[in-house]
Design a protein around this nucleic acid. Structure first.
Length: 1046
RNA sequence: GCGGGUGUGGCGGAAUUGGUAGACGCGCUAGACUUAGGAUCUAGUUUCUCACGAAGUAAGGGUUCGAGUCCCUUCAUCCGCACCA
């Protein structure tokens, strides 16, 4: 073999390792650059080709930046706490640390083979005490902080205590769970426990009763982003809403800063939008309604204060605390029945029934603070307790849900907004609610004639004047539930005294995860940590048994890479001043509402307390797309399914045989059936034209002396009932009516699986696609022998083959693009590809596949093209005998032009994360140089440097062959020289009326007049000008010449 | 329903941001060298047409000397979020 990648790659990986080529330290003589990958959770399955995609991209970027003179921090680590290892522990008793360690080693082995330039001395693992010490430490800082709304900053809780001692809650403007009010004297009079309870209302990490997503299948609570469609993201277990006491992070305090910060980072618009949506800021008003005959204030939130004149009823969430208080005795039974009914529904049921209107009347009435109108108060589960105040003023005319509700329960509807220039119509005739945001107000007293926008402002003004409402901003974002009832996570440095949680002293950190005997929850439902022996402080106080969630460790890992071995601090001032925040972050967009929000929160908090010099963690982010697998299918005739069509049932019941006839005169294939005992030949044919296609069969049957029954299956399928009756009648007639000789030709259906080729008729109706290992398929043709060996249970399967053009039997598979997954047998293992083609080819190919941010299918065959390119590249440096052969002659102009075009293309491509076009530029350049038979050092040396980010091993090998003693990693990227690429003539496309007709080589020095004269004088032009007048000539230098004729 | 993305050959995808549509690669076709080829090399490959030529970037309309690119309308598709008041 000419290019021995196995040897080369092994050699240089060893060299890089031995010489610590990728170790980085602070170097104030160089600008820093921080390139980060989202660190992986080491799962048992190992890496597939999709995983390294982002790692390869970041690796290229890091290597490129290094060649450009930057001091590049490019670390890697493991998000090592996680559910799979714990679930495995519950089943097998293996400590999750053991599983995790094993998986990490496998990941590392796979990553090493690809030749990444990570500084492994900076590796972090979230499950190691040296790391999670700082996760716990940050938690303590959060616990000991509150958020000051005035200065928009976290502050030490001691400041708050001092304030309470001085003036209580007077004029307090801080983030809080609920508003409290007390004087300094009252504060001082409180017991310690009472004071602690009060402080919980303000801490950034606090414990409180909350509606949580409880997942009985996992035995733990989950954060909102860990739940999708009412099921847990991990494991897919049902989730229910439940009120529990949990640790939470007051991330809502940062809602506005999280929103504003998005303006300062270079992220894709879609991820920013996802976050904006998740935070869900909406500006509106809070309005107080009195309850008739009672001294009760009912607060609602609305974004449409302008429609207050159109509100005709009110709705509370069934869990609303005032429901029982306001319900009248007559309505109590109905209301309670409704509450029980809604409470017993699971989250999934509730979501499934979203469009069903339901509710109950409380018997109470609210008073419209503006009009004084009496509004019936209802409860209904379309109003959610978790948003706003859990109560709404319903404006049925202009809200579709209120409209549906009003229609269903016959409540009045008043129109208050109309399209400008139209007259209001009677809402009773409406089909749906009328939601015109650019309309004007009617039936609304002092708001009449105003636009919606103006009316909202005017109404809020009025409400504030009357003291019955105020402008208010609401967020969809909830505080993050921070405790999990699991074992494999960071323990909380919290102990309980008198039932109240207290922070452990920082000197006690890390609080190490204790060994336990079993990993499931205790019999009494306590978290697994309750099994730990001596899980108490030195003073004997019990320690918290919850553990932190997965996102705890991943929220601040990027800081730790900056100073990973520091055991005095999270990270030093010096390290953070130099490395600052991540310049380029590469990873999946699926973390948009989880990790990427929590990390930003974490970073902003560390910024507030003076640790981080930046308040956004990731300056620029690229989300790589998923690499999908191409699954192959073989189609198995599905007898069960076929039996659903009456014919098959009859055939089965009558013990008729079945034969799949594969080679027929007209070239078509179809199912045919024989009755072995009775000698009946049945043809079932989809093609409609029964007469024509049945002819050969009639001959055949006559020749053999069988009775022939023709059944157009199209009848059976399209007209199920009649078709079945028809067939039934015919079969009965035939069977009952005659004495027929036994017939055994053909294969009777005996349960042997039968496979139908992709193109065979009837596939959709009568077959089950089964996934086939992609390694057994090439160009959609299944290797049937390999298939039989693969699935032992199918070794006797019968296949219906097709003929290829040479007359060979082939079995054609179907295919579909799906997510890569073991169960779909479409996984491409990078190890296999590295072994077959080398890491350099794999790296280049993954980049060549398409734009990094798009999802795209993996095409196994395509890698060959990239492999050819790499070998062609190698041959530039070698002669026919594979001897290294580079000449020191000066390069020619075309050679230099080719090189400098590539320099430009690579610089632009890498900066704009357009790696696929850079690879194609490499191919073009190498094709050109090969055509020029170029082996000049002046060209090849820069080329070796330039390819090193993509294909570091081959680059390093060639670099050393070129006589260098040091690594190509430390070389300098060649400088683009535009003068090398300029030409003194340009091959102009000449168009007439915008249509390109011919090309013409013209000197670039020509002016417009000269160009016009030259073009019009050209012999090819005559044909297009003939008989027409030249009206105008457009000349764009070095672009185009367009002649307008007519 | 709301928000965002995407639509270009048989396939993955290019197109310097308004200037030769289909680069580069896969696949396919033909040929060469071969005992052989899932190796290598050469040529071809958007569609229609024998050809001259014409059409062509989801569909329709517009702006322009010139539109894949800008504007309007529609459709398809993917991804988020979703009784959020």
């Amino acid at each position: 073999m000419d290019y021995n990648f196995t040897e080369i790659e092994k050699k240089w990986q060893q060299y890089w390792h031995d010489n610590k080529i990728y170790k980085v330290d602070i170097d104030h003589n160089k600008p820093k650059f921080y390139v980060l990958d989202m660190f992986p959770y080491p799962s048992g399955a190992g890496l597939h080709v999709g995983h390294p995609l982002g790692y390869i991209a970041s690796d290229i970027y890091a290597r490129y930046k290094r060649l450009k003179g930057f001091n590049v921090l490019h670390p890697m680590g493991y998000d090592a706490y996680g559910l799979p290892a714990e679930q495995y522990a519950i089943q097998t008793g293996t400590h999750p640390a053991v599983t995790t360690e094993k998986n990490i080693n496998r990941y590392r082995e796979q990553m090493d083979k690809i030749g990444f330039c990570y500084d492994w001395e900076r590796e972090v693992r979230t499950c190691e005490p040296g790391y999670y010490k700082w996760t716990q430490w940050t938690f303590l800082q959060l616990f000991n902080s509150f958020y000051c709304n005035g200065c928009q900053k976290a502050q030490p809780i001691s400041k708050l205590i001092a304030r309470f001692e001085e003036k209580g809650t007077e004029g307090l403007n801080v983030a809080e769970s609920k508003p409290l009010s007390f004087t300094a004297a009252e504060w001082k009079a409180m017991s310690e426990k009472e004071q602690q309870e009060v402080l919980m209302n303000y801490r950034l990490a606090y414990q409180a009763e909350a509606m949580v997503n409880w997942c009985p299948g996992l035995g733990t609570v989950l954060a909102n982003d860990e739940v999708a469609d009412g099921l847990s993201v991990r494991g897919g277990f049902p989730v229910e809403r439940k009120s529990m006491k949990q640790w939470q992070l007051r991330i809502t305090a940062y809602a506005d800063r999280l929103l504003q910060g998005l303006e300062t980072v270079d992220w894709s618009e879609s991820v920013k939008d996802l976050q904006r949506n998740w935070i869900g800021k909406s500006m509106g008003a809070s309005v107080i309604f009195k309850v008739e005959g009672k001294d009760i204030d009912l607060e609602v939130f609305t974004t449409r204060a302008d429609t207050l004149f159109g509100t005709t009823f009110m709705v509370l969430a069934p869990e609303h605390e005032l429901v029982s208080e306001i319900t009248t005795p007559e309505q109590r039974a109905e209301v309670e029945e409704y509450i029980t009914r809604t409470k017993n529904r699971s989250e999934r049921e509730r979501m499934a029934e979203v469009r069903k209107v339901s509710g109950a009347f409380t018997g109470a009435y609210g008073i419209n603070p503006i009009t004084g109108a009496k509004l019936p108060i209802w409860i209904a589960d379309y109003v959610l307790m978790g948003y706003g105040t859990g109560a709404i003023m319903a404006v049925p005319a202009h809200d579709s849900r209120d409209f549906a509700f009003a229609r269903h329960f016959n409540l009045p509807i008043i129109q208050v907004v109309k399209k400008p220039g139209t007259e209001p119509t009677d809402p009773a005739t409406w089909e749906e609610s009328f939601d015109a945001k650019d309309g004007e107000l009617v039936n609304s007293g002092f708001l009449n004639g105003l636009t919606v926008k103006k009316a909202i402002e005017r109404m809020i003004e009025e409400l504030e004047k009357l003291g019955v409402g105020t402008g208010k901003t609401n967020y969809r974002l909830r505080d993050a539930i921070f405790s999990r009832q699991r074992y494999w996570g960071e323990p909380f440095p919290i102990y309980y005294k008198d039932g109240m949680p207290y922070a452990m002293d920082e000197s006690k950190l890390p609080l190490e995860l204790p060994a336990i005997s079993e990993y499931k929850p205790t019999e009494t439902g306590e978290p697994p940590l309750a099994r730990a022996k001596n899980w108490v402080t030195e003073e004997g106080y019990p320690i918290e048994t919850n553990t932190m969630p997965g996102f705890a460790g991943s929220s601040g890992y990027y800081f730790r890479y900056e100073d990973p071995h520091n055991d005095k601090e999270y990270f030093s001032r010096e390290a953070n001043d130099y490395w600052q925040n991540v310049d380029l972050y590469i990873g999946g967009a699926e973390h948009a509402t989880g990790h990427l929000i929590y990390s930003r929160f974490w970073c902003k908090f560390l910024y507030d307390i003076g640790l981080s010099c930046k308040d956004e963690p990731f300056q620029r982010m690229i989300n790589q797309g998923m690499i999908q697998g191409r699954s192959s299918f073989a189609y198995r005739a599905n007898m069960e399914k076929l039996c659903e069509y009456g014919v098959w049932r009859l055939i089965k019941d009558n013990k008729l045989g079945v034969k799949f006839e594969k080679d027929f005169k007209d070239g078509r294939r179809r199912f045919d059936f024989f009755c072995p005992e009775k000698g009946i030949l049945i043809e079932i044919n989809r093609m409609g034209n029964l007469e024509k296609v049945a002819e050969p069969w009639q001959d055949y049957a006559a020749e053999k002396g069988y009775k022939l029954l023709l059944v157009p299956i199209i009848d059976v399928v399209n007209d199920y009932k009649n078709g079945t009756d028809f067939v039934e009648q015919r079969i009965k007639d035939l069977i009952a009516g005659r004495e027929v000789p036994a017939f055994v030709e053909g294969e009777a259906y005996d349960g042997t699986p039968i496979f139908i080729s992709k193109n065979l008729e009837g596939r959709e109706q009568f077959s089950d696609p089964i996934h086939v290992d992609i390694n057994m398929v090439r160009n959609d043709i299944l290797d049937v022998e390999a298939f039989r060996l693969w699935r032992d249970d199918l070794k006797d399967a019968q296949f219906i083959f097709e003929k290829d053009k040479d007359g060979n039997d082939i079995f054609v598979c179907g295919n579909e693009i799906e997510k890569m997954s073991k169960s779909k047998y479409n996984v491409q293992n990078p190890d296999d590809l590295v072994e077959k083609y080398g890491a350099d080819t794999l790296r280049l190919y993954e980049m060549f596949l398409g734009p990094l941010e798009q999802s795209k299918p993996w095409d196994t065959q395509g890698i060959e093209g990239t492999f050819r390119f790499v070998r062609k590249f190698w041959r530039l440096f070698h002669n026919e005998n594979n001897e290294f052969c580079v000449s020191d002659e000066p390069a020619t102009a075309p050679e230099l032009k080719s090189l400098h075009k590539l320099i430009k293309k690579e610089e632009d491509g890498i900066e704009s994360i357009s790696f696929n076009t850079v690879v194609s530029a490499f191919m073009i350049c190498v094709n050109e140089l090969a055509d020029l038979k170029c082996n000049k050092r002046e060209i090849l040396e820069p080329l070796a440097i330039m390819i090193s980010p993509y294909a570091p091993h081959i680059a390093e090998e060639l670099w050393h062959l070129l006589g260098h003693e040091t690594s190509v990693v430390n070389a300098v990227f060649p400088v683009y020289d535009e003068s090398k690429t300029v030409e003194n003539s340009f091959n102009y496309p000449i168009s007439f009326n915008g249509k390109m007709r011919f090309n013409m080589e013209l000197p670039v020095t020509m002016n417009a007049d000269e160009v016009q004269a030259a073009v019009l004088a050209a012999p090819e032009a005559a044909k297009w000008i003939e008989g027409k007048q030249v009206r105008k000539v457009i000349y764009v230098p070095k672009k185009i010449v367009n002649i307008v004729v007519g």
